Simulated scan of single mutants.
Amino acid sequence: MIELYTANTPNGQKASIMLEEIGLPYQLFTINIAKGEQHAEAFLAINPNGKIPAIVDRDSNQRVFESGAILVYLAEKVGKLLPVQVKDRAEVFSWTFWQVGGLGPMIGQWGHFSQSAPEKLPYAINRYLDESIRLLNVLDCHLQDKTFIAGDYSIADIANYPWVSGGLSFIRNAHADRVENLTALERWVKIVGERTAVAKGLEVLKSL
């Protein structure tokens, strides 16, 4: 049994989508980040960094934190959604951690500085918006002749989907003219979003 500690955020959605895709039984524990529950002593024992998502694999009492690490751990545990061949794994890892280190943080920072920061700083807002759009264009270009990001459907698609689908919608609401030509990316979002496991992975978090 997997214990999933999460909230309804793009990073949190990665873990629930992954668990639905691989069919492992899991128990969902809500972490209310608005109330600061991620800083509670019990949660810090699972993730010392105080961020969601995190899991505990009760088969081995192994804790795993950081969304990218969770995807890799679960893929290796069941032997799904991660290629065996070194070359193919490298491509999946490249795009998975491209998201973890780039796309997610850039969109997240743009959201913070444009929506949540007590002081609106044009330099910060524009810097993170420009980089978010640049990265979305990178993925759009990569997907021109591909159905999925790294060959077959994989953790690279799961890692990117919540940030791309949410990020496109978020940016479109404020700057529609800057993301109107990302046709390959829009096609990929539709294909991934229509997967049954993806829909279930999102649905289980809607009440959180």
Rank of each mutant, 00 (worst) to 15 (best):
A197W: 08
P162T: 07
A176S: 14
Y5H: 15
P53F: 10
F97Y: 15
N8Q: 05
I155C: 07
P53G: 08
Y153V: 04
G79K: 01
A15T: 13
H39W: 12
N47D: 08
Y128A: 08
W188R: 08
E37T: 12
A40Y: 12
E194D: 11
I149D: 04
P105T: 09
T96W: 03
S154Y: 04
W110T: 02
S132Q: 05
Q38E: 15
E119V: 13
G50Y: 13
I149P: 04
L121A: 14
L143R: 09
A156N: 00
P53H: 12
E131Q: 06
L121E: 10
G102I: 10
D140I: 03
K87W: 07
A199S: 08
Y128L: 08
L74H: 09
Q115K: 07
G166P: 00
I46R: 02
A159F: 09
L135V: 04
N126R: 11
D177K: 09
A40H: 14
I33M: 10
D59V: 07
K146A: 08
H112E: 03
E91H: 10
G68E: 09
E119W: 06
L74D: 13
N126G: 00
G104L: 11
Q99V: 07
S116G: 04
D145K: 15
G201T: 03
R178Q: 14
S207M: 00
K35W: 11
F93D: 02
T183I: 13
T196V: 12
A69C: 10
A42V: 13
E119F: 15
G68D: 11
M106Y: 01
T183S: 12
A150N: 09
Q27K: 10
E21F: 07
L74P: 11
G151L: 00
R127A: 03
G50C: 13
D130C: 01
T147F: 04
Y128N: 09
G68K: 13
E119G: 09
W95Y: 12
D152V: 04
I70A: 07
D140Y: 06
E131T: 06
R58F: 08
S94R: 15
P105R: 14
V138M: 04
L81P: 08
H175M: 02
S207K: 12
I46D: 10
G50M: 11
I55E: 06
A75H: 15
N181M: 02
S60L: 00
V100M: 15
E180L: 09
I33A: 10
A124R: 00
G79A: 01
I31V: 12
E20T: 05
F29M: 03
I155N: 02
V192D: 09
S207V: 01
I133V: 10
Q27R: 12
P118L: 10
A156W: 09
G36R: 15
A69F: 04
S207F: 01
G68V: 11
L135F: 01
F170P: 02
L168P: 01
